[in-house]
Simulated scan of single mutants.
Amino acid sequence: MKPKAIIDNHGRPVNYLRLAVTDRCNLRCFYCMPEEGIHYLPKKELLTYEEMLRLCQILASLGINKVRITGGEPFVRKDLLYFLKNLRKIKGIDKISLTTNGVLTYDYIPDLVELGISMVNLSLDTLDAENFLRITRRNEFEKVMQTFYALVESGISTKINTVVMDGKNTEDLIPLAQLTEKHPVSVRFIEEMPFNGEGNHYATLKWSHHKILDTLRQAYPNLQKLPVPAHSTATLYQVPGFQGNIGIIAAFSRTFCGTCNRIRITAQGLLKTCLYDEGVLDLKQVMRSGANDQRLEETLIHAFRHRAKDGFEAEKQRQSNHPVKESMSTIGG
């Protein structure tokens, strides 16, 4: 009898998959990828939708009940709705959500509602159009804001993902937090990570989760801490009387590893049991070598039961002995 949930070697359940459907993106955010010299994978090197659905079917049988679709930018890949409709049919997957930059999303919002997409995370690092251009290297601010308002109007649970970058958008923290006054959204401030495709990062992180919280408290002295949902990466707060809430994610400090329930599969089929590992299993190679479902199950279970304790251990175990330098677009957000 198959287990209802996988428990890893540190006693953590594994029930949440973040699946990248493409490594391509229509923005060039400097903290995610270099402006030029990006080597996109040829189509044959990406998982097909059929391969992704097969993996999701197997993972659902092992206890995965939540899937988040990421990229790159998911809507850059052709026929994404076809994939989402078939993913929705898989028994055991209760929640499907997605992360998007919002540039192409607006026209698909009615379809997302019809499909019962439970949540959309919208990447948005500033509310200033000129600063948006500087950060993303693309002039698409108005399209993203159109998507934001349409998502709120649609009733889809909406989260704003903001990467906090010293000297780039720290002046935007309070304007973004202010969105939660009149909109039932969650604005989540994320520590900057080294996944920019170049390996550049600070010796120390100036804008840690502590400094982000201090900055918010200066603007909102009555900021209240909210109960933390199980396995949440964010510490949640709310200004009394505001409709939405504010989250802080210690992605670089890695304070939430002890309750991590998520795995990642990249667009090229690498299984990552930690964001900071370099891929622990090439699922594409396993599938294309002719492995049956039972063999895939066994291989996945083995990987889940040999997870790193936390992001620091995963980083130390990287066999390349090189610091983290891959682009977030190749990992899956």
Rank of each mutant, 00 (worst) to 15 (best):
N321P: 01
V144K: 03
V286H: 12
L270K: 14
G71N: 09
L179R: 01
K78C: 10
L173V: 02
P42G: 07
G197N: 04
I265V: 12
D111W: 06
I135H: 03
R295P: 04
A5S: 14
Y276A: 13
K284N: 08
Y237Q: 11
E297A: 10
K309P: 05
I7M: 08
L19G: 02
L270V: 01
G72Q: 07
S123L: 01
T204C: 08
I96N: 04
C25S: 05
A251S: 15
L127Q: 01
E114A: 15
S123W: 01
T170A: 02
Q238E: 11
G37A: 13
I174F: 00
E171Q: 10
E50Q: 11
R305Y: 15
E50N: 05
I38E: 07
T126M: 00
G279S: 11
P110K: 03
L87N: 04
D172P: 00
Y220A: 01
A150R: 12
I38F: 14
A267R: 05
G63W: 05
V76N: 09
L223M: 09
L176Q: 00
H201W: 12
D8T: 03
V120T: 02
S154K: 05
G116P: 02
Y82L: 13
D172E: 15
S123I: 01
H210S: 10
D79I: 05
T235D: 10
F148G: 00
L112I: 07
I249C: 07
D214K: 09
S118F: 03
I249P: 00
